[in-house]
């Protein structure tokens, strides 16, 4: 009988403690450099054939903010997250308002638990596929031999069930994780630099995907992966959202 969170933390700290941090940092920087060198969005060929004035189902935002402790653990921050959700939502509204499409917000079917459960599963599926895309298409070393250069990721036709009440053409999913160095972490970074050790700071990472609600195909996939940015205040949050949605075919 252990506390669930305790177990997770103990394992994450074990993993951290038994790898010298500087090795991780080097790897991390390499990944960032590779990340910068590629385009930040991918599209499913041929270009999506969405109608002018498409109906876009906006899925619930999945945003979480963390503070990076001196020791390198991610401390979840509920207040920052609440603020970020608000800013990202407003930024999305104003970015999408510049497009011709109609945005329909998703509302969980509270009257129907079974339907709510299916929709939850579809959202989990999207997150799993999105994480796989992040790993397997942006880092050359992790490319899948079966995918080669083609971007043909899909959630499958089961996605239609999420659309039963909306009659939308496509759905937009947003997933963002953002972390910021604590004062202690910043001190460690400075001291580390003096001792010749590179200690990493916070990271803004996330993805957005536009999913065809007929086929489940991921029509377009945009991502964020950078050591800068701030979702806790409105202007940088707007900048991050614009960056994330750059090139979206709406």
């Amino acid at each position: 009988m252990n506390t669930a969170s305790t177990r997770t933390h103990v394992f994450s700290i074990l993993a951290r403690l038994f790898h010298p941090p500087f090795k991780l940092t080097v790897l991390f920087i390499c990944l960032i450099c590779i990340g910068c060198a590629t385009t930040s969005y991918k599209a499913n060929p041929p270009p999506p054939n969405l109608p002018q004035n498409a109906r876009v189902l906006l899925m619930p935002l999945d945003v979480q903010l963390f503070e990076l402790t001196a020791g390198g653990l991610q401390e979840p921050k509920a207040d920052w997250t609440a603020a970020a959700e608000n800013h990202v939502h407003k930024a999305l509204e104003s970015v999408l308002a510049q497009k011709k499409d109609t945005v329909v917000p998703y509302e969980p079917p509270q009257d129907n638990p079974e339907k709510a459960r299916i929709n939850e599963q579809l959202m989990k599926l999207h997150e799993a596929v999105g994480q796989s895309i992040m790993i397997h298409t942006y880092y050359p070393g992790y490319n899948l031999p079966t995918k080669k250069d083609q971007f043909d990721w899909s959630l499958g036709g089961g996605i239609q069930r999420i659309n039963e009440r909306y009659d939308a053409h496509c759905a937009l999913f947003i997933f963002i994780r953002d972390s910021y160095a604590s004062p202690g972490r910043k001190a460690a970074m400075v001291l580390g630099a003096l001792a010749g050790i590179n200690i990493s700071g916070g990271l803004q990472t996330g993805f957005a995907s536009l999913v065809d609600l007929q086929t489940g195909n991921i029509l377009w996939f945009g991502r964020l992966f950078r050591p800068t940015g701030d979702l806790r205040t409105p202007e940088p949050a707007y900048e991050a959202v614009s960056q994330l949605l750059f090139g979206i075919p709406l």
């Binding site: 506390t3 933390h9 700290i13 951290r16 020791g71 390198g72 653990l73 460690a188 050790i197």
Partner: peptide, 23 residues
Amino acid sequence: SLKQWRTIRDTSSALIFLQIVAA
């Protein structure tokens, strides 16, 4: 859980400075 989290967080934070000094 909260107590455990704070212990791990504070211990690992102290450790990083120790590692920097040792290195």
